[in-house]
Amino acid sequence: MEQDLVRIEGLSKVYATRGGPVRALDQVSVNARRGEFLSILGPSGCGKSTLLMIAAGLLPASSGAVLVEGKAVNQPRTDVGIVFQSPVLLEWRTALGNVLLQTEARNIDRAAAERKGRALLAAVGLAGFENKYPHELSGGMRQRVSLCRALIHEPHQLLMDEPFGALDALTRDQLTLDLQRLWNERRMTVLFVTHSISEAVFLADRVVVMTPRPGRIDRIIDIELPRPRRLAVRDTPQFAEYSREIRNLFLASGVLREA
């Protein structure tokens, strides 16, 4: 299907560890459509980060394939923006310097890149902080810089591995809104890994719910909430219904255990 940008077909991953083999992923198949925001939701250890790393070409699969526009991924992809759980900023570069590393690596014209970088930083509320070093920024600010770095080269795809996991709830809410706004302007294809039901439902067009290890797909849920979504959508009955459906999946698969 031409609409599918990313096809994940029968992906399996087994780690060989000192304590024996670990089945991280078990024949996961899912497709991401062009311009779609796909959330991958599951408990710790379900292989969702592994899935993302394989999709990014940073980890080899044990079996199965990831196809981007029909071509198999077998080396690190440079056509994506990637945001990790920790900001991974270079301590010796300023905020702007960190964002511009992306464009320096791609030999993009410096002046244009700098303009874009400053605009992006301003868009996430970091105007005035361009020349601060990472140690002078809070965790939320660093993660925003990381997000700008992932967007400055205007990739068609964004891969995000629990980017807001280490942040406090309010910062997380704000960054979720910022991400939604930036995505809405650019409409890139996003693979967003999270362990938060609320975050997954709020941001996504579809939520891929995963089982505990070995990670399989439990269910893929279409989220038909109108866009753009305000924070208040979390109080609507429709949102609650999606959350309930996912919660029940987790209760059934043992991710959550009630007395």
Partner: peptide
């Protein structure tokens, strides 16, 4: 941090860079 190397790879930086 291994992520720094991952980042370098995903930005297309060669070994020398």
């Amino acid at each position: 941090e291994p992520e720094k190397i991952h980042l370098a790879r995903s930005m297309g930086l060669g070994a020398a860079a």
